[in-house]
């Protein structure tokens, strides 16, 4: 009898812990400044750091707005966005045709805003000094859909020459680690490096050409890719520019020749467009949501100089040049004017 009542008190104790925790969760913030309401953001894991950081600073002046930012991937983001489940979709590529159709079907209207620039850094091990620059043909021969089974650098030479590359690769094992096909970086790399164009020229179907080789080590975790670069002197891979910059000691960047000489990735070459593998990053704002004051205030702040010019570089991305900042701001202004 006594024992049983003690057990009851222990369960009550557990319940008390959870209630205390709940009370604790509710005790942040306070005060009546700024906007209230909630903002739900999802989409590209590449853009997530920017949206998160902007949200964090926005929350400092608007502590009563509840914001959540996730980064499952651009495609997943648009799926949620076109179902009307999120207010803002982060994207590392423009919205695709079938996604536009899905949005139309559900009556979701939106505004596309360019918010930053990012690049794709092709990299190798710091111990590899034989390869310093790759052109389109080289990349096609090393990464492209026809390179399945090529397991040494030298083995890719003949294919590289065939498609107009420089070739001249060292005779060393070729160990590729890179993002998998669920990643926006994967799509960007294929598109910007010209793999798709070369493949189609060589008679592959569009789907077959818009893919990398199947036999490389794919990882959704960029830290794993960086570690692979450190692990072998003949490693090869690519990650987003911001990530590669953070890990600059562990890797060696490879320059890219897009037809006008070898250019390495840097904030300058990405901003002026001379680095071939650079891309804009976007946010898509649901028009219905944009009518809500907290969303409008958040996007107002997102498109301010402070966010686009100061916060963006702080999380490792390249700020838009002045004219594109203006373009973003006027796109947002006209979207809010009509709604």
């Amino acid at each position: 009898m006594r024992t049983v009542s003690r057990r009851g008190s222990a369960i009550a104790g557990l319940a008390a812990v959870s209630i205390a925790a709940a009370a604790c969760a509710g005790s942040g913030g306070g005060g009546d400044e700024g906007q209230a309401g909630s903002i739900t953001i999802s989409g590209s894991s590449t853009v997530e750091p920017i949206s998160s950081f902007v949200a964090e600073i926005f929350n400092e002046t608007n502590p009563n707005v509840q914001i959540s930012v996730d980064g499952p991937g651009t495609g997943d983001g648009f799926q949620l966005f076109c179902n009307g489940e999120i207010d803002i979709s982060d994207a590392s590529r423009p919205i695709a045709d079938e996604e536009i159709k899905a949005c139309e079907k559900n009556g979701v209207e939106y505004t596309e805003l360019e918010v930053a620039l990012d690049g794709v850094t092709v990299m190798t091990s710091p111990g590899n000094s034989a390869v310093t620059c790759l052109d389109d043909g080289d990349i096609y021969a090393l990464f492209g859909p026809e390179s399945d089974g090529i397991d040494t650098w030298a083995g890719a030479t003949s294919l590289a020459m065939e498609v107009g590359g420089n070739g001249g690769f060292p005779d060393a094992p070729l160990e590729i680690t890179a993002p998998g096909e669920e990643s926006g970086t994967y799509d960007t790399f294929i598109e910007l490096s010209g793999i798709e164009d070369i493949g189609v020229d060589r008679g592959l179907s569009e789907d077959a050409a818009a893919a990398l080789r199947k036999d490389y080590q794919a990882s959704p975790n960029d830290n794993v890719i960086i570690t692979a670069m450190e692990g072998s002197p003949s490693a090869l891979g690519f990650v987003g520019f911001a990530f590669a910059e953070e890990a600059a000691d562990s890797i060696r960047e490879i320059q890219i020749d897009g037809g006008s000489g070898c250019v390495g990735p840097s904030a300058e070459t990405i901003a002026d467009g001379s680095y071939p593998l650079s891309r804009p990053l976007y946010i898509y704002v649901n028009s219905k949501a944009a009518a809500r004051p907290e969303i409008a205030a958040y996007v107002d702040y997102y498109t301010s100089d402070e966010a686009l010019k100061t916060l963006v570089p702080q999380v490792g991305y390249v700020a838009l040049p002045a004219d594109r900042v203006e373009a973003t701001r006027s796109a947002w202004a006209s979207a809010t004017a009509t709604s």
Binding site: A22, G28, G30, T40, P63, S68, D70, G71
Partner: peptide
């Protein structure tokens, strides 16, 4: 579960918290 950024403003009822992210 949110993996990016999450703000947890005050002034919510326990039910709102439980039904929130």
């Amino acid at each position: 579960a949110v993996t990016g950024y999450l703000s947890t403003p005050g002034g919510r009822t326990p039910l709102e918290i439980l039904q929130g992210q």
